[in-house]
Design a protein around this nucleic acid. Structure first.
Length: 190
DNA sequence: ATTTTCAAT
């Protein structure tokens, strides 16, 4: 068995394909999934922590990012060491969650955060400000490309040995979203 | 002009 894949739960592949699409014409994407990884800085290299890898989805009344923050204490990370969290989100954080994640990062200066979002959650007012505040707190915010979709497929999905298969316009959608995000992040402070 | 998103019917 592959190292680290031992007793870890994997996401159903249909769920992954459905939920992590970046095709904005898809309807009914009313849940958010979050795949997460943690790495520890050891000398000069980042070492993946297999026990701190997995996925979750939002619970009623609790957005996925906050579910993740609730999980962090159970990992018993050493505050004298440096960690990097990487999140792959099907929807980017809403402004409220962004604020809470910013506060988390401020309280935990030994943790840095990279966020990749499949889609931009622009339903809520001032979502742009939330994304900018994350960036302002030192988080890297980016759009998932085929590289990340493939990585998640290999890492978090019960792929039954199948290779990742791209969907129509994956790259085009990703590029469009990337340009939108870039414009949001570059666009002032309001 | 169109329409949706961490549900609600």
């Amino acid at each position: 068995m592959e190292a680290g894949a031992a007793s870890r739960d994997l996401m159903d592949k249909n769920t992954y394909q459905m939920q992590f699409t970046n095709d904005l014409s898809q309807l009914g994407l009313n849940k958010t999934y979050l795949c997460y990884e943690v790495e520890l800085l050891d000398s000069n290299s980042w070492v993946p922590l297999d026990d701190c890898r997995g996925f979750l989805r939002n619970q009623p009344g609790l957005h996925a990012e906050l579910c993740l923050l609730d999980l962090v204490p159970s990992w018993h990370l050493d505050p004298t060491k440096r960690y990097r969290f990487t999140w792959f989100l099907s929807w980017s954080p809403c402004p409220d969650c962004a604020q809470k994640v910013v506060a988390f990062l401020e309280r935990n200066s030994h943790i840095s955060l990279h966020i990749f979002a499949a889609r931009i959650y622009d339903y809520r007012e001032r979502y742009e400000k939330g994304l900018r505040s994350l960036q302002g707190a030192g988080a890297q915010v980016a759009i998932m490309t085929s590289t990340e979709f493939k990585h998640c497929w290999r890492t978090f999905v019960n792929n039954k040995g199948c290779l990742f298969v791209s969907w129509n316009r994956l790259n085009m959608n990703s590029q469009n979203l990337k340009m939108r995000l870039q414009s949001i992040l570059e666009n002032g402070n309001n």
